[in-house]
Structure formats: structure tokens, C-alpha cells
Design a protein around this nucleic acid. Sequence first.
DNA 1: TTGAAAGCGATACCAC
DNA 2: GTGGTATCGCTTTCAA
Lengths: 374, 374
Amino acid sequence: MKTAGKDKHTKGAAKSLGIKEIAKILGISIGTVDRALHDRPGIRPDTRQRIMETAANLGYRPNLAARFLKSGKGAAIAVCLPRHIFHFFNEIRSGIHHAAMPYGSMWKLYDYSYSRFEEGETAIFQQALAQDVKGIIIAPGKVDTVKPLIAEAARRNVAVACVTSDAPGTQRLVYVSVDPFANGALAGEFLCCLNRPLRRLAVFTNSLELTTQAEKLRGFQESIRQGGFTNVVLDIVENHDSKKEAAHLADQLFGRREEIDAVYVSTANALPVLRAMERYGFLPGTPVIATDIFPGLVDYIRSRKVLATIYQHPEFVGRIAFEALYRFIQHGAVPPSQIMLPPLLVMRSTLDVLLARIRSGTNAARELPGISAM
Amino acid sequence: MKTAGKDKHTKGAAKSLGIKEIAKILGISIGTVDRALHDRPGIRPDTRQRIMETAANLGYRPNLAARFLKSGKGAAIAVCLPRHIFHFFNEIRSGIHHAAMPYGSMWKLYDYSYSRFEEGETAIFQQALAQDVKGIIIAPGKVDTVKPLIAEAARRNVAVACVTSDAPGTQRLVYVSVDPFANGALAGEFLCCLNRPLRRLAVFTNSLELTTQAEKLRGFQESIRQGGFTNVVLDIVENHDSKKEAAHLADQLFGRREEIDAVYVSTANALPVLRAMERYGFLPGTPVIATDIFPGLVDYIRSRKVLATIYQHPEFVGRIAFEALYRFIQHGAVPPSQIMLPPLLVMRSTLDVLLARIRSGTNAARELPGISAM
DNA sequence: TTGAAAGCGATACCAC
DNA sequence: GTGGTATCGCTTTCAA
């Protein structure tokens, strides 16, 4: 019977080897073991040595429940995200809460939402630092703004995770995001697959001063080039995250009624663009790739006016950011400097599955542990 | 200053109001309070009533740390997955371990891998049941085989989660998978976007007796139809998960050298097909959509011989299956009967990001928490 | 039907 | 330097 499962490998500690067994094995007291494990003063180096060795041998892992129960203070981390692109950032928050749930009351989350991108950022960040948090999650706007803040956090030994946009040149612990280059490249590659002429394309972005947006554009151009299209004219429209500006500029562009072979909107600000396209007869007919998913966009995808949208998996980003922070704070595990996730191309056929998933995810995050009905 | 974060909503208990204060306030013992909160027998209804009221008033929330510490018997769950399509199922295992990690030693995972799809299934399942597990994760082969097993599990009050394939008509708790219909539909929709004639298509599947495969085909056909292509001839090739059979049948099909406009391989068994296509000059040139990601496929995508592959996010599937089991066993939360995830279309531009992600995911699951440096 | 008390594992403090 | 021990909040068992 070779089909039998062999490695009935159990996860974590085999039995209940705790600080007590270590003490018993070495014939010393748990107090001493504790001192050794925590690098506390008042212990002979060789005793410490012996203890550390047996602890390692036995694969000792501290019981977090007991630790928390006694010393009351699990870690707290602050979540500083804008309220602005609500659906998007709320999914990130949801992911963070989701990831934190298993730790129950041991890990507190402070929610420091602020109204718009840069305005409240500084004030909020400082408020968060004033609390006794061990980590902060932010979505940096302008790097110059957050640079001194992150420096201050580093001074206080507070780990900082950046989501969706990075703060390069700072001491942030980790940057978690859907890979912006791949994001744009996917849009471009998809357009190249269409077997249509691509002579003139329009790209609607937020601002190319934001490195994520610049990277998306770079990826887009690169894959268009690799797709064999040269001499492509690119109309690049920066609308600075403003619906009005987007509408105005889109009107200008499409109002000229010159031929445009495809459109890529690299932000969640697609609706003004789509409406302008409809006004000037570019839709349906012109291939459009959008970004993110939000109520207004859904019908455009259903009706195939928007060919595909690139979903940036915000729930995932939040979850991973929390996990990286957790492992660093709890276990001292240093994550890679960047964690890049693949973008998800959503078309009509996968829209509903994704929507169901998003909704259930948001619900789950709201679930309260409550009183167990075990 | 309206930018200030208002809802500094803390997660977990506000102060230290516990079971003890409730008891003191009501002048009763903590044992009684416990009985009330947990609906245990042996308590007068009115006492229970009073306790529940004050508990609600005080906003009592149990201290999970204490709870875990005391009743430290987290559950054990058995993971019964085949070793066969190794990359795929290993990612599922990785996801499960990943999800279980936060619970540390409280939740044990027993790994009951077996060699191939149906062969070891029964033996392994019974072995798993013999252990004292509270839940089992399986990937059912033939439904008839697992039906009595799941029934037996239900009798013993063991929750069963099915991943990647369902066992309909049984008492399994939940079925977690990438939506097979959407999976096939995405492949079809993508092909429809190519602006090429689609007169004759080839679909390589495992066996249409497997409902997931049948669903993929259904989704594929449906979206081809919706894409406006009628009178499409479909060559459907069932290769029963065998490389040899796949190679043989592909040779037969492509050897006829009739025109084939596109190919969809709905299983991970793409390599024999691709090689046959190369032999008969169908590649490069013919659009191919594959399924899953594995070493041999990577170069085909890099060289654009395979246009796209549909990644079924196995790590995710595993993670979600565990979480559903966890919430059911621990909190009695009944999950939806099916949890369907969106398929991920991977092209050249997103391949590397995904590969990096997969690798790091597998690594992370192997990481040992070690001793805290808090 | 209720009360009292023994732990769970780690921390922190006091005594030696 | 080291050993002992009270304690965190909850579950559980035994006694009343």
C-alpha cells in the first residue's frame, strides 16, 4: 500500500513544549529561561547559551496567547489611508482587517482615515505616531511630504508599510502593490492582441509625477513596442484625480474627432472619459481598458463598451501589507523591500465572480468574533 | 481641522471588563456567567437572561487569548490531496499552511497526500477520519467514491471542504474553487477579442465526466456564442490526464493538417499538445490559451507561442478553504455552499510578477516564526 | 442550579 | 544570578 500518506507532518510544536519543559530539562527555573529568551540582564552567558540551544533544539515557540494574556499589550498598528477613492482604499482596509482577524484582540488596528490624498496625511500620521503603535500602513502621496514622517517613525522604531505607492529613499519597511509596470504592460499587451491597427492611442492618467502612474505608462509603452507597433502616437492626458478635469480634457481630446484606435485609463477615474467617448461617438467601437472596479464601471463592462479592466486586488494588498508588518514586528522577519502582485484582467465573463468575491470579502471583514457558539 | 481621523475605532475589548466583573456586578460566580454566555445546560432561564443583558450592556467581548490559553485544544484538520499534479496541489497545500499559520500550535494540520487521483483516495480519507480531526480538505475525484466517505465524516461530525472539484449531493460543508464556468468563458471571451475568424477550434480537456471540465467547456462555448461566432466547429479532445494519450490524440488531430483557428487547453496537461502543434507547424501562429502555470509552460508564454494561460490561484483556494473550515469549526459560522474565485488571465507581461509571487508564497509557508524579538 | 478552585504558558517581581 | 510564585481571563471539573 504505497498510497498511504507518509509524512503525517504536524505543524508547529509537536506537543506542548513551553518554557516550563525547557526549564525542567535543564534543571533550572522558568524565570531563568525567560531571562535568556528575552536577552534580559542578570544571567550568566553560559547559562543563557545552554538555554538558547535547547530552546532551538526543541523548536520552542512562545505561546502568544499566554504572552498576551499576561502582558496585556499586543501590538497595535495604525492604518492611515485616504477616504478618497473609497472603494479602492476600503478594500485595502478590509484586507488588513481580514488579515488581522486571527490575532483577535491581541493586535489592535487603529483606523486613521483622512479625507483626501495629501491634505490630511501629515496630521494623521503624527496622530498615529502619538499612539503607541508598532506599525503604520500608509499610501504615500507626495514623497517629500512623508519622508520626514517616516524618518520620525524609524526613529521611534515604528515599522512603516507603504501600499499602492512607494516612498523611495526612506526607511519604510516594505512596499506592497500591484506591480505598476506589469499593470500598464498588461493593458498594452492586451491591446496588441486585438489584431487592430494601433496608430494613435490615448492614455488617461492621474499625474506622471506619481511614480506608479509613470511606471504604468512605461509598462504600457514597452509592451506596445514589443507587440511590434512602432510610430504609435500617444495622447497622454493627466487629470490629477479630478472628475471635472478628466471630463474637460476628454471632451477636448475626443471633440477633435480625430481617429483614436484605443484608450487606456490607468486610474479609477474612467467614467468622465467614457462619457465623453460616448458623446463623440467613440463608444461603442473603440477598445477601452480601464482600471479598478466600481459601481459605475460595471455596466460598461457588461455592455462590452469597456473591453476589460485591470483590477488591482486591493484586498490582497492590504492583507499582505499586514502580514509583512506582523511578521516583522512579532518575529523580526524582514520582508523583501517590495512585494509586487500581479494585476488581474477582468472581462465580462469574470466580472460577476469577482464582484461576488469582493462583496463577500467585505462582509467577512465586518464579522465580529463575538461570543463563540462552539 | 476636518482632516483629523475620527473613528479611532479600536478592535477588541475597550478596557478589561471580563467575565469576572459581570459576576461581581450581579453578585454571582464566574462559573454561572460562563454557563450563560455559552448556552450551557444547568442554569435557570432568568439567571441566564440577566447575565446576557448585563453582558450586552457592558459590551462584553471575550478575551480570546485567555480562551485559547485555557482550552488550548485547537482543532486538527487533515489535508488529503493528490501528489499528482504536483505544482498545482502543492500550491493549495501551501495556501492551507499559510492560512493556518496565525493559529500557531493550536491548529494542527495533518498532511495525507496520496499518489494519484482516485487510487489512494479512499484509504487516505479513512486514515484521516481515524485521527481525531475536526475537518478534512479533499479534492474529490469521482463523486461515487467519496460519497460514502463524506457521509461517514458527517456522521462523525467532521466538516469536509472540497477544493477544485465538488462532491454534489453530499453533506460537504463547502466547495472552494476557481469558477470553472468563468474559467472557460474567459478563455472564450479572450479568443473572441482577437478579431480573427473562429471557424474551428480545438479544446483539450481531461474528461467531460468531471463536472469542472464540463463546466469549463460550457463556459467556453457560451462565450464564443456570445462573441457572435456561430457555426463554430469544436474538436473536443479528452485525454484523461495522461501525457501519452494527450500526445497521441494531439498528433492525430493536428496531423490531419486541417485548419484550426485557435486552441484552448483546459487542464495543466498542455505540453504534449503544444509539442504536437509545433511538430505540425501550428505553432507559432495559432492562438493558444492554456491553464495553470508550471515550468514547462513558462517558455511558451515568454516566446508568445502561448498567448495566455488561466491561472487558478491554487494558493488562494487552499487559504480560503482553510478559513472556511476554521470559522465553521471555531465559531460555528456556516460558509456559503460554494466559494468561487475569479480566474486570473496571465500573459507575458504579468508572468514574472506572478512567478515571483508563487515562489515567495511557497517560501513564506516554510518560514519558522522562531523566538520573538519583541 | 450554582459556587469554588485548579490550571493553561508566559511575565514580572521578590527573595535568596 | 537564580528560584520561586502571583497573575492575566477563561474553561472545566468537582463539590455543594
